[in-house]
């Protein structure tokens, strides 16, 4: 199953490497979000630093949803989804493959856009970078795992691009609350570290619960 999932993820990523459509769009979009934020909050003002943790996750959420939308819609052309469904593998392999591909792309976007954000807003990290990376990782993991699942669900609809955010945002709200709080503490106020740790635990618990749940339920979503 893992092998098949890697094969599927490789297929998606290789195709992305050829066209570079989705990744470019996501990164440019992330840049635009940063730009819009610089208009909304004066970068020269010192209080702006307080919104940076929030901006990071706005970037992740909005550029992430672009990628998630594509991930199952791209299989509709020539009905390639049928090709995957008749292949001898479980639905969970398809889910895992798509998840791996989306997660990789998400990490690439974060890797490019977040340093860029820090640079533009002249943000100096006073907290711990390893913990920051950990939070980015578990936050993106949860967001993409449930996002991939709901993208598969929404793909059944004609207007799935509009449906996906409506499904995804309320369901992921605990992750978003958790990671924004944790990011704020880690980046600006290490004194409350224990509280950040508690948030990290909450988000990790969410990740585990929903990853397992998605794994079990994806069979019903991809059923024909």
């Amino acid at each position: 199953m893992i092998k098949t999932a890697f094969l599927l993820a490789k297929k998606d990523l290789y195709s992305e490497l050829k066209t570079k459509q989705v990744l470019t769009t996501m990164i440019i979009f992330a840049g635009l979000v940063i730009l819009v934020f610089s208009f909304a909050f004066d970068p020269a003002n010192n209080t702006t630093k307080a919104v940076i943790p929030g901006v990071i996750w706005v970037i992740v959420v909005f550029s992430g949803i672009l990628g998630l939308n594509r991930s199952f819609l791209s299989e509709q052309r020539n009905d390639t989804m049928q090709g995957l469904l008749i292949a001898p593998m479980d639905a969970s392999s398809i889910y895992l493959g798509k998840f791996l591909a989306n997660f990789t792309m998400m990490l690439v976007v974060e890797l490019v856009s977040i340093p860029f954000l820090f640079l533009l807003f002249d943000f100096k990290i006073i907290g711990s970078i390893p913990y920051f990376i950990l939070i980015m990782f578990i936050g993106s993991f949860g967001f993409i795992s449930i996002g991939t699942f709901l993208a598969a669900l929404a793909a059944n609809s004609k207007s799935s691009e509009m449906l996906l955010p409506l499904l995804l945002f309320p369901v992921t709200s605990p992750i978003l609350i958790g990671v924004v709080q944790a990011t704020r503490i880690i980046l600006t106020n290490m004194e409350k570290f224990s509280s950040a740790l508690a948030w990290i635990q909450l988000v990790s618990a969410y990740d585990v619960i929903f990853f397992v749940l998605c794994f079990l339920l994806i069979e019903y979503v991809l059923e024909v």
Partner: peptide, 9 residues
């Protein structure tokens, strides 16, 4: 989970 998260928040 939502409730728990918001309660903390």
């Amino acid at each position: 989970i939502v409730f728990f998260a918001i309660r903390w928040w």
